[in-house]
């Protein structure tokens, strides 16, 4: 287990993202001096209010946004561009799925780019379409699907590439409460089945507590940072009504009420 935990780990030291404001001649930090170690196979939550820079941090891990200072290593390799090992599930399925491709073609996209043999593509897409519960919808186009189903397609599409790390940017934020609940449960199941490292960005405390093993609290920006990290060792599936859940909820809630 320790070996696995070291593999695919993410090491962040003194990480910064700044932009300069020419009118003031001043440097602004979106995030400043973030230190964080995420173990391989861990389900880590980045929790914070809107505009705190949690998406920026996620995009930096993904390699979409360059850093202004510090270190960011995945699997002991410095991150400077996107890679197949780090898959991203975006908040908006409509803007990230390819509407001209069917569900199956969307799921096979990464494999097609890699020129995986056709039969193998088929086997892999079948497996992940089944895993996210979309069997029977393979030949549909994204516009024929509901919001929850589109997010399932996104999930299957990234899992098909077998990434080590899943980066999820409020993926259930646009879903209705009931669909969100189902998706949260299934994500936990998928995570436990596939042993991926998951970094999940949210501003919903309950969601954070339902999903994560550790919860990193990000302060309000600018110059945002991870101020506290909470362990959540409650066993899955988690019971929202339990006393421990309630206590932890209140503790974390306290952070945002100051």
């Amino acid at each position: 287990m320790t070996l696995l935990a070291k593999q695919n780990a993410i090491h962040i030291e003194q990480l910064r993202k700044s932009y300069s404001e020419p009118s003031v001649g001043d440097v602004h930090y979106i995030i400043k001096d973030v230190d964080l170690v995420i173990k391989g196979g861990e389900f880590f939550i980045l929790l914070g209010p809107s505009g705190c820079g949690k998406s920026t941090l996620l995009n930096m891990i993904a390699g979409f946004v360059s850093k202004s200072g510090g270190n960011l290593r995945v699997n002991d390799v410095e991150v400077n561009k996107p890679g197949r090992d780090r898959a991203v599930v975006f908040q908006q399925a409509d803007s990230s799925l390819f509407p001209w491709l069917t569900v199956r073609q969307n799921v096979e996209f990464g494999l097609r780019m890699k020129k995986t043999p056709k039969e193998e593509q088929r086997l892999i897409s079948d497996r992940y379409i089944r895993l996210v519960g979309l069997t029977g919808h393979e030949e549909k186009f994204p516009k024929e699907l509901s919001g929850g189903m589109k997010q399932r397609v996104q999930l299957a599409r990234v899992l098909a590439n077998d990434p080590a790390i899943l980066l999820m940017d409020e993926p259930f934020g646009a879903l209705d409460a009931m669909t969100r609940r189902t998706m949260q449960k299934e994500l936990v199941n998928i995570w436990r089945e596939t042993h991926k490292t998951v970094i999940f960005v949210t501003h919903d405390i309950q969601e954070a507590l339902l999903l994560g093993e550790r919860i990193g609290i990000m302060s309000v920006g600018p110059s945002s940072n991870i101020t506290d990290i909470y362990d959540n060792s409650l066993s899955y599936p988690r019971d929202v009504a339990s006393q421990q859940f309630y206590n932890l909820y209140n503790t974390i809630q306290g952070h945002f009420e100051e």
């Binding site: 996107p82 803007s95 990230s96 990464g110 780019m113 890699k114 599409r157 990234v158």
Partner: peptide, 25 residues
């Protein structure tokens, strides 16, 4: 949309593949 290009890129598509398989369609 930037998200389409980003997702293709993180799924391992080259710049040429992004042009052909994302931007053109």
């Amino acid at each position: 949309e930037e998200d389409k290009i980003r997702s293709a890129r993180s799924m391992g598509a080259s710049e040429w593949q992004i042009l052909l398989h994302v931007i053109v369609p």
